[in-house]
Nucleic acid binder design. Structure first.
Length: 483
RNA sequence: GGCGGCGUAGCCGAGUGGCCCAGGCAGAGGUCUGCAAAACCUUUUACGACGGUUCGAUUCCGUCCGCCGCCUCCA
């Protein structure tokens, strides 16, 4: 089994990955607070960890992937009150939208997608222990975690409590003993969803759910904890403090992986400022493959500055991938349709070893998807070159096709073969008819007519190409209007 | 104020102490073609500034300039 190396936020170094249990990866990725539909930032996070997960699977690991939904919090409650519906309904609706968006993005379902509200007992138990061990205190039905009880607090984010205090925004009238203490349990206010607890009715604070669910499903010391880099402080820091204090053992998670954020035309994408693109919006204009390619072309730890021209470029590149796949299928070396929905996929590859080893080397070097993409395009060029030959070497072609397919199981950027889907069964026959007519016109050098046919077909989205091997046609994948 | 990141050819974006290369998009020329498209080939004096280390730095160190993120909810 290969040694995968990647950057561990905890050590700030690239480390060789040694799993807790030979051949297995237990990973937890912070999902979303479902008060609104996901935006591109969520999509990047999901796609990044989807590729990481699929690479581990490709490399032969047995992966357990947990990603949660935060389905109770202030914003959800606020939305519910605005709309005059129950908070649970807001959460439920957005979970459905999330799942639909992820499906369209080719993001595999987590093995477990726990909801916070379904794990209240685990959280209560954790809070109970924390109070008992005096890591937490009760004020008017709220329960707070005492940050200064943890000497190592700040290790993940490189923050020191003293330094933080300099710039801290201390709110007056706080019930907390220290501004960095954080809430484990919030006393219920009228009209809010609440659960019974030994400290009175209330609901959990944000951080406790991930500690409780992480420990519950994966156990202390699981392999990888991931999320957006904006979660490093304080969310992940707090998760660590709670879990390790409660369980009296460490570490909570052994490797921490954080993806960079998405910017929109140079500014941070954030719902609060209205500066964001929703996933639904994006997928209305663009293919999921283009979105995934866009994500894969930038290293996951760097900021990704989104713009309409970038996604348009990605769309063009995806078109190139799709054309190659179509030609391979037409050449009879059939590439299986993109397997981005599959999750179990380790197979010995013998196709184009050079590209495959470049792909592996890239992925095992801190999940360098840009290098993986380069390897993929090298294979496409190779396949296209082979296809140019009068009498293509089918064996070599099959090898290239196979390698492309293998890489794409992880990346999920090659569109499915055309012709095989959608449309009506009659279309190929009608097309043949039109092309036959056009061919006769051309034979008689009636180019006015032949061009008319081609132009009119182009208007309805069908592209006709004359090649040395004969005339072929294809449907245009997607219009790419400027955003 | 504290912590962290980034600055690479027209654009996006990898990478490396010297040797021959990322990759994508765009542009130019060519092959093919009635034309076009696709594909392939070729091509466009890249490494923010200034010092230092070194036989040699875009790559290591320092300073500076510029941009950005986190420190409050946030993927």
């Amino acid at each position: 089994m290969p040694v995968v190396q990647f950057f561990n936020t905890l050590s700030r170094e690239i480390e060789g990955f040694v799993p807790r249990q030979e051949g297995r990866v237990a990973m937890y990725v912070c999902g979303s607070t479902v008060y609104a539909p996901p935006h591109l930032g969520h999509a990047r996070m999901a796609v990044v960890f989807d590729m990481i997960r699929k690479y581990f699977e490709f490399a032969g690991y047995d992966v357990t992937f947990v990603s949660n939904f935060t389905d109770v919090d202030d914003k959800i409650i606020a939305r519910a009150q605005e709309q005059g519906i129950p908070a649970a309904a807001v959460a439920e609706k957005n979970i459905t939208i999330w799942e639909e968006n992820m499906r369209r993005l080719g993001v595999a379902l987590p093995d477990i997608a726990p909801k916070a509200t379904a794990h209240i007992p685990e959280m209560l138990e954790m809070i109970r222990v924390l109070i008992e061990k005096e890591y937490a205190y009760i004020v008017d039905g709220d329960v707070y975690f005492r940050v200064d009880a943890i000497p190592s607090y700040g290790r993940l984010s490189g923050q020191k409590l003293e330094d933080l205090q300099v710039g801290a925004r201390v709110l007056p009238g706080e019930k907390k003993k220290s501004p960095f203490d954080f809430v484990l349990w919030k006393a219920a206010k009228p009209g809010e969803p609440s659960w019974d607890s030994p400290w009175g009715a209330g609901r959990p604070g944000w951080h406790i759910e991930c500690s409780a669910m992480g420990v519950h499903y994966l156990g202390m010391g699981f392999d990888i904890h991931g999320g957006g880099s904006d979660l490093i402080f304080p969310h992940h820091e707090n998760e660590i403090a709670q879990a390790e204090a409660c369980m009296q053992s460490e570490p909570f998670a052994r490797y921490w992986v954080h993806n960079g954020l998405v910017k929109l035309d140079g500014e941070k994408m954030a719902k609060s400022t209205g500066n964001f693109v929703s996933v639904s919006e994006l997928l209305q204009e663009h293919t999921s493959q283009a979105v995934r390619l866009l994500v894969a072309q930038t290293h996951y730890r760097k900021a990704l500055d989104f713009s309409s021209s970038l996604i348009a470029e990605a769309e063009t590149a995806v078109e190139r991938l799709g054309l190659c796949r179509d030609r391979l299928v037409a050449a009879g070396v059939g590439m299986p349709a993109s397997a981005i929905q599959e999750t179990s996929l380790y197979e010995e590859v013998s196709a184009d070893e050079k590209a495959m080893s470049a792909f592996r080397a890239a992925m095992e070097n801190d999940f360098a998807t840009p290098g993986a993409v380069a390897a993929l395009f090298e294979l496409v060029k190779r396949a296209n070159t082979l296809l140019e030959a009068q009498d293509p070497d089918l064996e070599a072609l099959a090898g290239a096709a196979r390698a492309i397919s293998e890489i794409d199981r992880v990346l999920g950027v090659v569109p499915p073969a055309k012709h095989s889907e959608g449309d009506t069964a009659l279309l190929p026959e009608l097309m043949q008819l039109l092309l036959d007519v056009r061919e006769q016109a051309r034979a008689q050098r009636d180019f006015d007519l032949s061009d008319l046919i081609r132009d009119r077909l182009d208007e309805v989205g069908i592209i006709v190409e004359d090649t040395p091997q004969g005339t072929r046609w294809r449907a245009r994948r997607r219009q790419t209007p400027g955003l």
